Amino acid sequence: MEKLKDIKLCVFDAYGTLFDINSVTKQYCEELGDIAEPFSNLWRSKQLEYSWLRSLMNRYEDFWCVTEASLDYALDYFNIKNEFFKINLLKAYENINCYEEVPTTLSKLNERGLLTAILSNASPSMLHMAIKNSKIDCHIDSCLSVDNLKIYKPHPTVYSLISEKYDLNKNEILFVSSNSWDVAGAKSFGFNVSWINRFNNKKEVLPFECDIELKSLMDLPNIL
């Protein structure tokens, strides 16, 4: 397997990379029935769409507000009129689970003396809850949110937060994401990038490709 040299810091995207977005709706498969998967996919796609639109319009709201608004859209799209169900879904999002391999992977990186950080579109409170619920706080050296800038990834100023935080060259930083649009943004900024392609998605038709594609975070220590 191809390896990257001189990496001192691994920066992770949060949702979809460390934290399993689908774990939220999986708790309510019985209530959602056949629409569970399309409901989850629509909620996520609208969440991203609304964050990008707000960036383009210079109308920032934090990611929790965007998450609730996109949930409202999904509920309306599937004609679900149940405020109690909405509240439960939002509570489940607050207690989102990490992927099974995350604690072990982070632990291995720590053992090798690598720094680990999170760079996310999520608000600080969302990240705090997700990290605490997943019990990975002891493995993360720093957690950076776009909330300080009031603009969302993949805007280049977001990735610059890492360069401002750490006195490292870009070639000493590995950015890790399962989101192909995030991969393109980080690569465009100049980071080494690993794409965690868990679901065998097609590559984006963009001029910024990842350096290494992996199927799981479990494989990450093997490339460093």
Rank of each mutant, 00 (worst) to 15 (best):
N179I: 05
S177I: 02
E61V: 08
N179G: 09
C65F: 10
I21G: 05
K91H: 08
A14Y: 07
V24L: 10
D147I: 07
S55F: 08
S120M: 00
M1N: 03
P154D: 11
K135I: 02
K91M: 06
N197Y: 04
L48H: 01
S120P: 05
A92D: 09
Q47C: 03
V176R: 02
K215C: 02
H155V: 15
W181S: 03
K170R: 01
E111M: 15
F199D: 12
H128M: 11
Y99H: 13
S177P: 06
S107F: 09
V146S: 11
G33H: 13
N201I: 04
L9A: 07
G16S: 01
N201S: 07
C29T: 13
S107D: 12
K203N: 10
Y28E: 08
A186D: 03
A186F: 05
S55N: 03
K135G: 07
D167K: 12
F39S: 08
G33T: 10
K170F: 00
C29V: 13
E209Y: 06
S45F: 04
D211A: 05
L109S: 07
L168S: 01
A36V: 15
F78M: 08
K86V: 10
Y28I: 07
D211M: 00
E68Q: 15
Y93P: 06
C138F: 10
A69M: 14
G190E: 05
V183G: 03
N197E: 08
K46F: 02
I21F: 14
D141S: 13
A36G: 06
S178N: 04
W43P: 01
E101G: 00
T104Q: 14
L114T: 07
A130Q: 14
S40G: 14
S51L: 02
Y50W: 01
C138P: 00
N192K: 14
D6V: 05
Y50Q: 01
G16T: 01
N169Q: 10
L217Q: 03
I7K: 11
I173N: 00
K91C: 00
I7L: 12
K8D: 09
M1Y: 04
K150N: 15
L75V: 04
L217M: 05
A117Y: 11
E213N: 04
W43L: 02
F19A: 09
D182G: 01
G113C: 13
L119D: 03
C143W: 09
D137F: 09
K135A: 12
G190D: 06
E213M: 05
E111Q: 15
K3A: 07
N82I: 09
K187C: 00
A92F: 12
R59W: 01
K202C: 09
Y93W: 11
Y73R: 06
N222S: 11
I223S: 00
G190N: 07
N197W: 04
P221E: 02
T116D: 08
C210M: 04
P154N: 09
D72V: 07
S125P: 03
R44G: 01
